[in-house]
Design a protein around this nucleic acid. Structure first.
Lengths: 187, 187
DNA sequence: TGTATATATAAAGGGGCTTTTAAATGACCG
DNA sequence: CGGTCATTTAAAAGCCCCTTTATATATACA
């Protein structure tokens, strides 16, 4: 059992969606002048929402990508809101969007410092090149996620498909770090 | 009517084909050690034939690209020969290939010199940058082909989908050059 | 305060890769 | 001095990488 209770914060949820029909992006541009669309640079139109504060990329094919939500539910609500706004703006969309959460990013504070140099030598599937990036990159197999470890005891977990995976990943790593004596707690 | 009869030679025919089924390229490699397959460099396997002298790219999807044939018929024969050899080699291919000629390259000699500098200023849709490439690049609209013109009176016609397009392109250009007084014939 | 470095993830469009071929011109090598 | 190499054009195939969006983390660099 880990000595501290990690503080976990979901920072970003990415979800893909599809309304299963072609969409005229130029038309959206006219109805929503605040959207960004530069096809020569990127094929997706950027539709930003204040609440939930997100950015949704809309493609010609009717597929979308929503980023920036703080939870799985908020990501779903953001997509539903975008479709609702498009419809109110006169964009004809027959079906409701089918949404799938693709990635969850979380920041964690373990409450104690990590001996990174030693962890780099001990943890399997780890990469640590401080002159390239200050964090140690660790690939967890189950759940299949990637965790960035910092000497401060803070972590970044990414790659999770559902929120429980984040908690399991953090618990697995925390336990492993303590077992190997890689955690340094102030008294 | 042009004063000379151009000498036209079909130099290269490119055709795409499909046997409409997945193919195991590694298996072909084992049965045909002389083939080239470097997936990290390019996804297609190169299958060369001595007769007709061609190189056929074979993809995992069952689609192929045959290059180097000297006529449309030879391109078709080359693909049929490749499929026949694969079958004799034990590679199971159910359907016969559906072949489509995609490009024909021909070399031409008009029999007189061309005033390139003047042609560059006279011909529409032309590009001529001698320090970059010695030929003048001219885009013909009908047939939709591209012709490279050289001061020697020789040409390269590419982009044609069928042989008659090559002859029509050459005739159109030759007539145009004579009308504008851009041809220079000896005596 | 910005830039970059690194992680994951979807979307779609662009570019590059390889193969073939002629033409003519320059650079480069032994 | 002669070979190679590059230059340019078209075309298909499919795979890689990049583009963009968001986000925490922490370093170095202007």
């Amino acid at each position: 059992m880990p000595q501290t209770k990690p503080i976990v914060s979901i920072e970003n949820v990415v979800a893909s969606a599809s309304v299963d029909q072609k969409i005229d992006l130029i038309e959206i541009t006219k109805k929503f002048p605040d959207t960004e669309y530069h096809p020569e640079q990127f094929p997706g139109l950027v539709f930003r929402l204040k609440t939930p504060r997100t950015a949704t990329l809309i493609f010609r094919t009717g597929k979308m990508v929503c980023t920036g939500a703080k939870s799985e539910d908020l990501a779903v609500k953001a997509v539903r809101t975008v479709v609702q706004k498009l419809r109110k703006g006169g964009i004809k969309i027959k079906k409701d969007a089918v949404i799938v959460v693709q990635n969850i990013v979380a920041s964690i504070n373990l409450g104690g410092k990590i001996h990174l140099e030693q962890a780099a030598r001990t943890l399997p599937r780890s990469m640590y090149e401080p002159e390239q990036f200050p964090g140690l990159i660790h690939r967890m197999l189950d759940p299949k996620t990637v965790i960035l470890l910092f000497a401060s005891g803070k972590l970044v977990c990414t790659g999770a498909k559902k929120e429980p995976d984040v908690y399991r990943s953090v618990h697995n790593l925390h336990t492993l770090l303590e077992e190997k004596g890689l955690m340094i707690y102030d008294e």
